[in-house]
């Protein structure tokens, strides 16, 4: 059983890393023939870095669009970040100081993460416009994330699993040495869900995470008059003249 989990985890991690790398390479290698920043846009590279930082950390555009969606999504993503950082303790020995420090926050972040996801799903279910544009996979992805959060919280607050053994398993897994994993149904559900998420990441809308960095309307400098911007395929048209 432990061996099966270990192998599946290797496989899905590999799929995640290779798949994501491929997509990112695809984005990076696709030309951008024209200057299309949504203006007003920063006129310097530093300004672009700041704009992107505000976009990625604070969801600036979403804030302008809809406060409810912004609040729910900020709650979810912020909590998720804390939860992920908290999980570093399963992969480090000794546990880094700051990771130890955030443990209590990380545990409660699981609850706020679930609340955020619930809010986002409620919008999808009850707001007519959002319901109209939602596909089955949009709903299922929220269910999957809520399943991950709920199973994690169950192990933290209700039916404790043997976290020392879990940590032993993951430390060994990192060095390709298979250690026993507790035979716990909730833990199995938690890990399966996480693996499912990793596997679909490079093929789904979860690509919004790397995608935002490649969005020309957000990452271009507003300097078309000062500097000639020319892509390779467009330059070729010039030599044909």
């Amino acid at each position: 059983m432990s061996l099966l989990f270990a192998i599946l985890l290797y496989a899905t991690t590999l799929l995640f890393v290779v798949g994501l790398f491929q997509r990112i390479r695809g984005y990076a290698n696709t030309p951008v023939p024209l200057k299309i920043p949504t203006t007003p846009a920063p006129t310097t590279q530093t300004g672009v870095v700041l704009r992107m930082t505000r976009e990625v950390l604070f969801f600036e555009s979403l804030f302008k669009a809809n406060l409810w969606t912004w609040a729910m999504s900020a709650l979810f993503h912020g909590s998720l970040a804390l939860v992920l950082l908290r999980h570093l303790r399963y992969f480090t020995e000794p546990v880094w100081g700051w990771v130890a420090l955030i443990q209590p926050f990380g545990a409660y972040a699981g609850i706020t993460m679930l609340a955020g996801l619930g809010g986002l799903w409620a919008r999808r279910l009850f707001v007519e416009r959002i319901r109209y544009i939602s596909t089955l996979s949009d709903h299922l992805m929220l269910v999957l994330l809520m399943g991950i959060a709920a199973s994690g919280l169950t192990m933290k607050f209700i039916t404790h699993t043997d976290v020392v053994a879990v940590k032993g398993f993951f430390l060994g897994w990192l060095h390709f040495s298979i250690q026993p994993l507790p035979a716990d149904a909730i833990l199995a559900l938690h890990l399966f869900s996480v693996m499912a998420l990793l596997a679909i990441f490079p093929f789904s809308k979860l690509l919004h995470a790397p995608g935002v960095f490649f969005s020309p309307t957000r990452n271009q400098t507003d300097d078309p008059r000062e500097k000639r911007h020319l892509s390779a395929w467009a330059a070729k048209l010039e030599s044909e003249n």
Partner: peptide
């Protein structure tokens, strides 16, 4: 690829 159907 990137649209998550958030409705913004």
């Amino acid at each position: 690829d990137a649209c998550v159907h958030c409705g913004a």
